[in-house]
């Protein structure tokens, strides 16, 4: 069943096309990621899907309801963990949760049980009765996540869920998110500009650049689309050129010799490597050093957008201006 369906979803702010004819669908209990730099249109897409903004063009359905015409119904089934920390500093964690429960019409008794459950899931049980003011950034973000769960949403939208968290906390957040999907079958739509996050968490990734989806597939397929993995090896005994020998092997797609090192392009490197080694041993070629290099999403990103994600990070004036406009209209 398709939980999210977007058809030519477009949002214009004056001259700026923040989201440009974006189409995709998300299946039930799938984790779907939007990967792209700041200002690519990720938050604007979330805002349209969660009924905060109306699309300029195109349409989207969430949980089977139209985001524009049935916004009330959509609000019943979605949860949002926003990019900014919006939990109330002046209230305790518990009070924040109970307020959220009231906003989603969860009866008080049920809300108490679910709060305890959600807080223990994000390891905040001990801090439940402390004012949020005393929480660390990671704790606030986790409370934000717990709030998004109080009404058992069908779809949870996570906008940059680990932005500004340290590496350890980030890994913990990933565990929580995966646990949620596995135990509660919640469909999740997340945005991120961290490659690793998209790679670890998402079943499928859409790479979004300047409002357009430039690639959409599983992380594995996206990496495979680059032409597969690289095996680097050196021989102990043969110093003369073995390029042709290597090329004759069935698994090998391409070989480049750089110094004494051979860079061999293969698909499904972990399967190809044992076969290649076995064949080479039969030919009495002794391997001195071997390594398998898996392509990273960073390379995928480079391939599809023509620049690395780090480069795009607000470097040019244009990107900066775009971000400023988006920020202004968002507030």
């Amino acid at each position: 069943m398709r939980v999210i369906e977007a058809n030519d979803l477009t949002k214009r702010f004056g001259q700026l096309v923040a989201v440009d004819h974006v189409s995709f669908s998300v299946e039930e209990s799938e984790i779907f990621g939007f990967l792209g730099p700041n200002g690519a249109g990720k938050t604007t897409t979330i805002n349209m899907l969660t009924t905060l903004l109306n699309p300029t063009e195109g349409s989207a359905k969430v949980g089977g309801f139209d985001v524009e015409k049935q916004d009330g119904k959509v609000r019943e089934v979605v949860g949002l963990v926003p990019q900014d920390i919006t939990v109330d500093d002046d209230l305790t964690g518990m009070e924040n949760m109970m307020l959220q429960a009231k906003l989603y019409h969860v009866p008080t008794k049920v809300a108490r049980e679910r709060t305890m459950e959600a807080l223990s899931l994000v390891a905040l049980t001990d801090a439940a009765n402390r004012r949020v003011e005393t929480y660390s950034g990671g704790m606030r973000k986790r409370l934000e996540l717990a709030e998004g769960l109080i009404h058992y949403p069908k779809v949870l939208f996570l906008d940059e869920p680990t932005l500004g968290l340290d590496v350890q906390t980030r890994v913990v957040m990933w565990d929580y998110i995966k646990k949620l999907r596995d135990e509660h079958k919640i469909t999740m739509f997340l945005t991120t500009h961290y490659m690793e996050e998209a790679d670890v968490l998402c079943d499928r990734i859409a790479i979004i650049d300047q409002g357009k989806i430039v690639a959409l597939d599983t992380p594995e397929n996206l990496k495979d689309s680059l032409g597969g993995d690289i095996i680097e090896l050196e021989f102990n005994n043969k110093k003369d050129d073995q390029t042709d020998t290597l090329k004759s092997l069935s698994q090998v797609k391409d070989v480049k010799k750089i110094g004494d090192t051979y860079r061999i392009k293969v698909s499904r490197g972990e399967k190809a490597l044992p076969d290649i080694i076995e064949n080479l041993l039969k030919m009495d070629l002794r391997i001195g050093r071997v390594s398998l290099i898996k392509p990273t999403l960073d390379q995928v990103y480079l391939e599809y957008t023509g620049r690395s994600l780090r480069e795009t990070q607000g470097e040019t004036m244009e990107v900066w201006r775009r971000m400023r406009t988006l920020r202004r209209v968002r507030e």
């Binding site: 609000r75 949002l80 900014d84 920390i85 906003l103």
Partner: peptide
């Protein structure tokens, strides 16, 4: 409330 995003949280809720 608008600045800190709290307002958006209310607007996403079915209230």
């Amino acid at each position: 409330d608008r600045r800190f995003g709290f307002l958006n949280k209310l607007l996403v809720a079915p209230i």
